[in-house]
Nucleic acid binder design. Sequence first.
DNA 1: TATTGTTATACTCTATAACTATA
DNA 2: TATAGTTATAGAGTATAACAATA
Lengths: 173, 173
Amino acid sequence: MTDDQAPELPAGLEAELGWLLGQAWHGYLTASQAVLADLPAGPRGHLVLAAAVHGSARNQIELARQLGLDRTVMVYLVDDLVRAGLVERRADPADRRNRTVVATELGRRRLAGATAALAAAEAHLLGALDPEEQRTLRTLLRRVVARQLADRDDPEAVRSMCVLAQELKDAAG
Amino acid sequence: MTDDQAPELPAGLEAELGWLLGQAWHGYLTASQAVLADLPAGPRGHLVLAAAVHGSARNQIELARQLGLDRTVMVYLVDDLVRAGLVERRADPADRRNRTVVATELGRRRLAGATAALAAAEAHLLGALDPEEQRTLRTLLRRVVARQLADRDDPEAVRSMCVLAQELKDAAG
DNA sequence: TATTGTTATACTCTATAACTATA
DNA sequence: TATAGTTATAGAGTATAACAATA
């Protein structure tokens, strides 16, 4: 058992960030889908349900922006959760265009179970790291993602990256 | 500018591993696609091209297993790279079922440019972290992924996780 | 006119099965 | 029969545009 290192990979690729992120994401998807199979829309349904229980958004668009989803997929996700009786769409008296997504009592109970199951999946996924390292990984990821979200609304950031990349390409090719 | 923390997220979700991994992966995909737009098949084409240059696999199935791809998508990726003149399929005299994927001279040159461009994208993506932290993140991810790959061929691992998740669900719900 | 929610459409990615050629 | 490569097909996920209701 050489189980801590040596995933059989072409040399020079084992530290490839894209490959690492892709594999980690794929592993999370697989594990969370297996564990949340009985929840409508799987891991993304859990995300929406959790937000509904917390009640942090006044309408679906705000909810979509918070979770990094498109407003059109939010419709399908909420549809599925409504059909399962886990959330309700409530009209906003102040602005009748808004639909506030609120969790039902059943939704709250199911969220508790789903969160516990997801915790087991995450513990399994990060099983190679000790608790301190797990905290470090989450912190680093959180900072990377925070920067990303800030850049997302800043076209200048992406443009300057592409210009730099083109210069490097010209220099190398 | 509160730009280092506080991505506007429902409380309790900002440390959600699945959300963090999904956002990080999405950010990597977007950045790498922008920077590798002229490379066939984008970031995955780069992965295959890099493996071809390194010459670590004797046939397409071995290549697919190394990169964590399906053998059927490998066909499309290699097709695209062949059409662009970056790699060739060579018959293996010892076993004529095998196709060895080898890089052309043009492929080698394009890989150098693509790798440089990708490095710029990664630097931008991890710009919130200092070099030491970037190394730490890669190391932690590598260990997580290595464990995953080991588990992937071990059905017992997934099963035991699901059993534990069900127990937690029953206890919570 | 702008915004929210919704629907329809198309495109990509993925997963599966089946077919061929070799062994 | 088993394996490597390929092809075809269906499903999920995503992105875009268009539409109705409301502001």
